[in-house]
């Protein structure tokens, strides 16, 4: 099978996957006993007021009809309207998703750039002091609560040293760059605004570090294990016997072969990180979709809950597809 056909098959398979996700999310968010119309109307609302809201949002319809209305709107690119804000969910997502995407993107870049070398180093120096130090770093990254690390970094780098800003994407009175992608670092660069570029990078620093810690630890530990497996295999011994330098043996032979399982973990971590930005967004006042989803869940506002879930779902399956394609790039033995 060629890559084209493989891609086509995978894209076709996305449809049932996302439909399944939509059914699951829809059912879960609708089986809870709470009444979103009543919540939106407030405690003093008359029953007529509640009924009118229920009717306006189609909540008086049978569940199955509500689902089909939702899905048919979704195919037209309409994520519905928030019952609490009466704003279009599509426009809310368009405003907020780039903020989260930017955060996750840089966090993953940081996690990979730091995690991969440290994972390799950890394997090369197995059970010696670099390995021990890296192990402590990995365990700390996994076990220390994000909000605790976040606040500690704020106290140190923003409050005490004054090197980095405390929160937000830009200083409050700074006007954001003209929107191209919605990601401030990219947009300010594309607009040629160096001041805004540096500003947005600095604002990105602390939340990125906090968010990167978990995937970085996962990458380090996964790569270390896979490297150790590979380094005991015959082809590595042969490479050494051929007289190749240790750097070439490790980077050119061992690491390349050990990277496939880590690549899977990187892909999955990307998705997990995207779905787990809430705490970081709360601490750093980052107006992303994590915060948006939690607010919506607290109010049982179906349309935003569904919108965020579907969006993350799409990104997750697309990332998996990208990872699958990358297997073939890294390992020529894998073909489609």
């Amino acid at each position: 099978m060629g890559l084209g056909r493989y891609l086509l098959r995978r894209i076709v398979l996305l449809v049932p996957t996302l439909l399944g996700l939509s059914i699951l999310t829809f059912v879960i968010s609708h089986i809870v006993p709470a009444d979103p119309a009543k919540l939106a109307a407030g405690p003093r609302a008359t029953s007529e007021m509640v009924e009118s809201i229920r009717k306006d949002y189609g909540l008086d319809q049978p569940l199955i009809r509500q689902y089909f209305t939702y899905i048919s709107d979704l195919f037209r690119g309409d994520f519905g309207t928030s019952i609490m804000t009466q704003r279009s969910v599509s426009s809310d997502l368009a405003a907020r998703f780039p903020a989260t995407a930017e955060l996750v993107l840089y966090a993953m870049v940081l996690a990979i750039v730091v995690g991969v070398p440290l994972g390799i180093l950890s394997a090369v120096y197995q059970n010696r002091w670099p390995d021990q130090v890296i192990r402590i770093l990995a365990i700390s990254s996994v076990s220390l609560p994000q909000f605790w690390i976040g606040i500690l970094l704020q106290l140190t780098f923003a409050s005490s040293l004054g090197w980095l800003p405390l929160s937000k994407r830009l200083p409050t009175l700074e006007v954001p760059p003209d929107k191209i992608t919605g990601m401030y670092v990219t947009d300010s660069l594309l607009n040629g605004d160096v001041h805004l570029f540096l500003m947005s990078l600095k604002h990105l620093a602390l939340p990125t570090i906090v968010l990167a810690m978990l995937p970085m630890a996962i990458i380090m530990r996964t790569l270390r294990g896979d490297m150790l497996n590979v380094m005991n295999q015959d082809f590595v011994r042969v490479a050494r016997a051929k007289g190749l330098s240790e750097v070439k043996v490790i980077l050119g032979h061992a690491a390349r072969n050990a990277f496939i399982p880590s690549l899977t973990m990187i892909g999955l971590s990307f998705g997990w990180t995207l779905g787990g930005t809430v705490l970081v967004e709360v601490i750093f006042d980052w107006p992303g979709i994590g915060n948006y989803a939690v607010e919506a869940a607290g109010r049982l506002d179906f349309a935003p809950i569904m919108g965020v879930t579907m969006l993350i779902g799409v990104v997750f399956v697309v990332l998996n597809l990208v990872v699958d394609i990358l297997y073939g790039v890294i390992d020529p033995r894998i073909s489609y």
Binding site: F147, Q154, S167, K168, T172, I283, D285
Partner: peptide, 9 residues
């Protein structure tokens, strides 16, 4: 008016 949820921030 800016939204900042976390008290310590």
């Amino acid at each position: 008016y800016q939204v900042s949820e976390e008290s310590s921030t």
